[in-house]
């Protein structure tokens, strides 16, 4: 299955992936208009320390602790992708406590969580963080 991978050496730490991820969740057509002055809630996050930068999002684990531990059944695996049914999530954050990568975060309203679903809803075939990474540090590949 294709997943998102990050090449740490190429990541500039520009955080654009976070903005594109947040933008994808809006219904606006202009990113600046959609996000200006707002705190963003991306599903990918860039970690920085000195010269080291890298982005992290859901690994879509084969044995996902978040799915197994989900107390409501809101998380499931569908065709290899870890999906979230936000309607059934009550925001207990067991998945946040379970994810070894720190890849699940509270949604904007705090009453549920949110996570990367590989931009399946955009129907573009490639996640926006990958498509818009200026240095091709984020790739979408099948590495088994």
């Amino acid at each position: 299955m294709k997943r998102v991978y990050v090449n740490e050496k190429w990541c500039l730490g520009c955080h654009l992936c976070e903005y594109y991820c947040a933008f994808t969740q809006t219904d606006k057509t202009d990113m600046a208009y959609a996000l200006r002055g707002r705190k963003i809630f991306p599903m990918i996050s860039v970690e920085d320390s000195g010269a080291v930068h890298f982005a992290v999002n859901c690994r879509h684990c084969a044995e996902p602790l978040c799915v197994k531990g989900c107390i409501t059944g809101a998380l499931s695996i569908q065709d290899g992708v870890v999906r979230l049914d936000q309607e059934r999530c009550i925001g207990c954050f067991t998945c946040i406590l379970s994810c070894p990568y720190g890849a699940i975060s509270p949604a904007e309203d705090g009453h549920a969580v949110q996570k990367c679903e590989l931009c399946l809803s955009t129907n573009e075939g490639v996640p926006q963080c990958v498509k818009n990474c200026p240095n091709a540090a984020i790739v979408f590949e099948d590495r088994g």
Partner: peptide
């Protein structure tokens, strides 16, 4: 020290992190 201040994979050694995040081709 970094980790207790703020959880992140940044607190891991580079090789360890590469293994966790799927390596680099």
């Amino acid at each position: 020290e970094l980790l207790f201040r703020r959880p992140g994979l940044i607190a891991f050694m580079g090789v360890e992190r590469k293994a966790m995040l799927g390596g680099v081709r």
